[in-house]
Amino acid sequence: MKKHVYLLIAIVVVAFVFAKVVAVLAFEDIKEGQALDAPMVPCQLQQGCRLGANTQVKSRAELKLNQPFYIELTTAEAVPEVSVSFSMVDMEIGYNRYKLISDDGKHWQAEIRLPICTLNRADYIATWRVGEQKYQTALNVNR
């Protein structure tokens, strides 16, 4: 009976290590996809801005730490998927990606809450994925 317990413990440990390796590899792949190759676009979300020739994005209210805000993104042509993720320069804030929702592929929206920074920084960078296109914008976030 004791051998079965040790075998079960060994299986659980191996499964945990395997899951951890898979999670780390997946996170590294996702982090790489969070796009330093995307162009940085000047943007004031509260006033609205163009990410590209055919894409506009706007926040309904000012961005504040620890409070949700509502994003609206519009494209001239329908796209299959739109998402946004957040990062900071020289700061690992973990995986986060918000998928915006749409009924027609042209008008997208989402309620978003920024990841919390334990150092109380507010210099977020948004990486927008609009179909196959990627853009980055610096966010003005109030405390």
Rank of each mutant, 00 (worst) to 15 (best):
P68K: 13
L36P: 11
S59D: 02
K99W: 05
Q47I: 02
F86N: 03
E72S: 07
P39V: 00
K99L: 14
K31L: 08
T118W: 13
N140H: 10
P115R: 01
D29R: 10
H107K: 09
E77A: 08
W108K: 00
Y98L: 06
Q136C: 10
K20I: 10
R50H: 13
A35R: 03
A61T: 12
Y6C: 12
V84Q: 01
Y135M: 06
M88W: 08
L63C: 09
D103V: 00
K99Q: 13
L65M: 06
I101C: 07
M88Q: 11
E62S: 10
G33Y: 01
I9T: 13
S87Q: 10
R121Q: 13
W108S: 02
K2V: 00
Q46S: 10
Q133D: 11
I9D: 04
I101L: 15
A53H: 03
E28W: 14
A138C: 02
F18T: 14
N54A: 11
K64H: 07
V141D: 00
Y95L: 09
L63G: 01
F27A: 12
Q46Y: 07
C117D: 11
I125N: 09
V89F: 15
Q44S: 07
F18C: 14
R60F: 00
A38M: 07
V12T: 14
R121C: 10
I93G: 07
D123R: 02
F27V: 05
K2Q: 10
L7E: 12
Y135H: 09
G33Q: 14
R97H: 01
L114T: 00
S87C: 05
A19R: 08
E62I: 00
A53Y: 05
L119D: 13
W128F: 03
A78D: 03
N96Q: 03
K58Q: 15
A23M: 07
E111I: 01
Y98T: 14
R113A: 11
R121E: 03
Q133H: 11
L51H: 00
A26F: 15
E77W: 03
V130L: 10
A122E: 08
R50I: 04
A76K: 13
S102L: 06
V24E: 11
A19Q: 11
V17E: 14
Q47M: 05
A78M: 06
Q133E: 12
D103L: 08
Q34C: 10
D104C: 01
S83A: 08
V89G: 04
Y135P: 12
T118L: 15
D37T: 12
D123I: 01
L8F: 12
G48K: 08
T127C: 15
K99I: 04
K99F: 06
I101A: 15
T74F: 09
S87N: 13
Q109W: 08
P68I: 00
P80G: 05
Q34Y: 14
L36I: 02
A138L: 09
F18I: 08
Q47A: 09
E77Y: 03
D103K: 09
S102G: 05
L65C: 00
S83I: 05
V5E: 11
A61N: 10
L45P: 15
R143H: 09
L8W: 13
L51G: 06
K20P: 02
Q136R: 15
I71A: 04
K3P: 08
L139T: 04
R97K: 15
C117Q: 07
V14T: 13
T55Q: 04
Q67T: 04
L63W: 00
V13Y: 01
S87V: 06
F27M: 08
R143V: 01
F86K: 01
F86Y: 12
